[in-house]
Design a protein around this nucleic acid. Structure first.
Lengths: 124, 124
DNA sequence: CCCTCACTTGAATAATTGCTCAATTATTCA
DNA sequence: TGAATAATTGAGCAATTATTCAAGTGAGGG
């Protein structure tokens, strides 16, 4: 067996050697660290659901109570609340209580930029 | 959704009336249409996976063969190829064949902007 | 020609996710 | 206080998804 290549892998993993070590090294240096990737993917994942995206784009216009959000989505109050909890947990939305009602609004201007950037992509 | 809001829901849906009709109407007008939301959420969903995000951020530095990408991720060739197919399908990456090897690169500059915008959000 | 290598693809599996339903909290009003 | 309303929460379920495994394709090399 090749000197550098242990390859005890059941699956051939491309001879266990980088095809272009220098290039891979350079790429590796320029990549965000693992934590950033993880955090970033979490945000994208949260935005990667039509229901949540609708909530975000609605709240980017004005604050709304849970009830109105649910109507706007055509979803149940419960489903809406569940999604709002997820958005709240990631600090994308904040809530304000007024009597029996809870008003939600965006907590982060960055999200609007992401939406705008994404819509530009769609427009192509 | 119908402006009249039929709401024959079994679950009490906030008295079947908008709490603030005028506000909801205004919000509704400013929201992207359903197709845009769907398309946009699909892009975010694809970016919402650490493996794919790593691939994208690697390819934003330089083109790479499947083998090197897999190494960079610490993933199997197969898993990598599967994810590349998804990215290819959404036209986020393109591929170029050279002998036995296949080189992948970004197909869409917009994605880099999305990544950059997202990283700004993380930085907070 | 056969064999190997780089990669693709399909099926199976385990984990995740978004929804509904039911119960619960919190607030208002009679 | 007790009934009603707005919203939250947890359990359970169906659908989706990321990975692995195994088989298959296609380009070179001996």
């Amino acid at each position: 067996m090749a000197p550098g290549a242990s390859v005890k892998d059941n699956h051939a993993v491309c001879e266990a050697e980088f095809v272009d070590k220098r290039r891979v090294g350079a790429v590796s240096k320029h990549m965000p660290d693992s934590d950033s990737i993880e955090a970033l993917s979490e945000i994208f994942k949260v935005l990667g659901d039509p229901t949540r995206l609708r909530i975000i784009s609605a709240l980017s216009v004005d604050e709304l109570c849970v009830c109105d959000i649910a109507h706007l989505l055509g979803a149940s109050i419960s489903a809406t609340s569940h999604q709002l909890r997820i958005l709240r947990h990631l600090h994308l939305v904040k809530h304000r209580k007024e009597g029996k009602m809870v008003y939600y609004s965006l907590d982060d201007a960055c999200v609007e930029k992401l939406l705008a950037e994404g819509l530009k992509h769609i427009a192509e």
